[in-house]
Every structure is written in C-alpha cells, then in structure tokens.
Design a protein around this nucleic acid. Structure first.
Lengths: 159, 159
DNA sequence: GCGATCCGGTGTAGTAATGCAGTTATTGCA
DNA sequence: TGCAATAACTGCATTACTACACCGGATCGC
C-alpha cells in the first residue's frame, strides 16, 4: 500500500507480496473457523502444543514469549475449554506436563486441513505443466527463504 | 503440522504451506516492529484507513466487522496515540471523518517497507535465471489464487 | 541436611477489545 | 413542522491478555 503503483523496481517482490496476501487470506479464513472457540493467543498455544507435545507451562511461556503466569492463566482457560490437559509429572513433582486433548488436537487439525483444502483448490486451477514449474519455483523459493527460521511463530500469526 | 510426514499426496500443496510459513514469518517480523506501539486490532484499523482514507467510524466498524461502539473506542486510543485524526464533516455534522495522521501513515509505511526489504533479501538469494522462473510461476499462482478476494483482511492478519 | 534454585500457581492490577443499551445531535422525509 | 432514521458517543459489563510480586512445594548441590 501507498507504494508508488507505477514504477516497480522489483517484479518478484511485488508478486511475492501479492502471493503473500493470498496465502494469508487463506490462513485467516481457516482460522476464522475456530475464532469463536479460541482466541488467537490461545490458538498459538495449541499450535505449539501440537508441534511439541509434552511441554511444561514454562516451556510454553518461553515458546510464546510470555511470562510464566500468563501461560498458567492461558492453560486455565484452555483446560476449562477441555482443549488441553494438565498432567502431573512423575519424575519431578513440581512439574506439570501439558497435552492436547483429543478436542484440542481436532481443533488444530481442522484448521490445518481447511488450509490444505483451500490450497489444493488453488493448485487445482493450475494447468498440470504449470504446476510442475510452480513446484520447482517453490523449491527454490523455500530454499532461499528457509534460511531464517527465527521467530517462526512470532506474533499472533502462527497459522 | 501433525500431518503424516511421509506420504505426501500433493507436493505443490506441501510446498505452498512451507512457503506460506516463510511469508507469514516475514509478515510477522515486520509487524513485530510496531508491536509496542499498536495492538493487532489497532494495526488492522490503520491498514484500513491507509487503503481507504476518509472513512467514517461506522465504515471502519463495518470493514473490521466490529460494532460501531468498538470502532469508536478503538479510534479513541488511536487518536490518543496521535496516529489517527478525527475531523468533523462539513456536509453532515453528525459525521466524523477519520484520517491517518502523518505518524499513522509512517507507521504503516514502516511495516510495509520492512516487509518489502525482507522479501527483496530472499529474492536476492536466488539466481537470476531462477528468479525469472519464480516470477512466471508466481504470476500463474496469483492468477489462480486471486479469484477469492473475500475477507482480504479478515482476522488479525491483515499484514 | 540445608540453603539456593526451580516450578507452578495465586493475588493484584492495568490495558484492550467487545457488545448492548441508551443518549445527543443532526438530518431527511412526509 | 414533526417524527423516524442516522451517526457518534457514553455507560456498563464481560472476557482476555499481560506482567509483577509473591507463595508453597520440590529438587539439587554441597
């Protein structure tokens, strides 16, 4: 926005921004499905839990970059919604291990499968030979982009 | 996530998800720059205001899918932060017209230019001939994806 | 064994987002 | 002219996120 619409010094960047918008719109749409069940921070927590099961609250706090007390309250709400389970550790009785409940897992799965479905639909609109070229191009792009794994799920946009 | 890592029925979709993640990470990083100045809902409001200047609070509420009173309070906060200006309409004295202040415009600009910078950096890591192929592939993809302009800035992910 | 450390949780508090209901001012229509 | 409709705003209430300070239990190192 508010970029000079004419003179485009870098067509690849412009096209990437457009692609970005489309991909984020798809992600947002998939997230909208569960918007009435969890907030965005809560969904982020679920995603973290889904990717690395058996996390302690303090690990979750670390992953989400919030204070431990915030993680505790968040877990309170997620447990109340029966999306997360608290299990007392056997080895260290100070510790609590967090686990996605079946419902929690289903919720995250619903979002990701909705996303995949939408993406597949887009891919389906592309001619077979163009798909091949797209695949090659994406490999190259992912290679180039993948070198910055930093805050992969920073902010509220874990998607 | 939590997809069976092996059997990949659709390489293009998988690659798109990976690319999605990279692009969203870049968007999130650009947003992180202003995270201490505005909240995500507030930033969404600024983006709407940047794209369609001279909006009334009720139009903003409509664009953000919130109630008018919510829009009013949001504007209160943005005005207090001197990112938005309220101007009383001449034609209809009931109406208020919202405008981005120079600071507000600068804030949005900062985010978008950071995003462009990061994308350019990724593109710069790609060999010239691969860039050409990427450009072609992105055109095809954007064509296929662009047919769903729906809630372009749904949720908190306006980017 | 004992103090330091660590973990989870609670008390407290502030900001934000959000909506419903109701108010005020203004406009438009009959 | 007068009443319905409209725009913005305010009062009120709820939920969430967030952190700081603190507590109590558990573990670890010496």
């Amino acid at each position: 926005m508010q970029r000079i619409p004419g003179a485009s010094p870098d067509p690849a960047t412009d096209l990437l921004i457009t692609a970005s918008r489309a991909l984020v719109a798809i992600a947002a749409k998939s997230l909208a499905r569960v918007e009435d069940q969890v907030t965005l921070p809560q969904y982020r927590a679920l995603v973290v839990l889904a990717s690395r099961d058996r996390l302690r609250p303090i690990d979750l706090a670390d992953a989400l970059d919030v204070s431990p007390s915030t993680a505790t309250r968040m877990c309170d709400r997620l447990v109340r919604k029966e999306l997360v389970e608290r299990v007392h550790s056997d080895s260290d009785r100070r510790e609590v291990v967090l686990r996605l409940s079946p419902d929690g897992r289903a919720l995250v799965g619903e979002v990701t499968s909705a996303r995949r479905r939408d993406l597949r639909r887009v891919v389906g609109r592309i001619a077979a030979e163009d798909q091949k070229r797209l695949i090659e191009a994406l490999r190259v792009f992912n290679d180039a982009a993948g070198e910055a794994p930093e805050s992969t799920l920073a902010l509220g946009m874990s998607l």
